[in-house]
Amino acid sequence: MNDIDAWVWWLVGAAALGIPLVVTAMPEFGMFAVGAVAAAIAASVGGGAVVQVLTFVIVSVALIAVVRPIAARHRTQRPQLATGVDALKGRQAVVLERVDGSGGRIKLAGEVWSARSLDTGHAYEVGQEVDVVEIEGATAIVM
């Protein structure tokens, strides 16, 4: 055991930290693994035990402090390109059959959709333009 250099132990530690990264999908383990690789580099150039540990701690903490907030911000952002029914929200449509609180038909994005008025007391007549507020199943909610 004494014949193995310190940098090898740091690489073993980095590999060991990579296992829970893959299993749990927690990116913090990956950041610790990168810190262990940095400590292995410090050990390979002759840094003592204190330098190795400080390198591991500084690199790991710096990655967590910088990368984690960026990753969290990207995770909470909505995609730039709306697809599916999300792309239809906010679009305009033309009334084909009278639309009120109980139903009707509109032409939306070149397709005929069933529609319902958002305000149940308000009706839209044939030819009128309406805005799509929401899509519920196969029914467009308009106003």
Rank of each mutant, 00 (worst) to 15 (best):
D3M: 08
I4V: 15
A6E: 10
V8N: 01
V8G: 07
V12G: 05
A16P: 10
L17N: 01
V23F: 07
A25E: 00
M26R: 05
E28W: 12
V34T: 12
V34L: 00
G35Q: 01
A39C: 06
A42E: 08
A43W: 12
S44D: 10
G48C: 11
G48A: 01
A49E: 11
V51N: 04
V51P: 05
T55S: 03
I58T: 15
S60R: 13
I64Q: 02
A65K: 07
R73L: 01
H74T: 03
R75M: 05
R75V: 04
Q77T: 14
P79H: 03
Q80I: 13
L81V: 14
L81I: 15
T83L: 04
L88K: 01
L96P: 06
G103K: 13
G104P: 14
R105E: 06
I106F: 12
A109Y: 11
G110Y: 05
W113P: 03
W113R: 02
S114W: 00
R116T: 13
S117M: 02
D119G: 03
G121S: 12
H122I: 08
A123N: 05
Y124N: 02
E125I: 02
V130T: 14
V130L: 13
V130N: 06
D131C: 12
E136C: 08
G137H: 01
I141E: 00
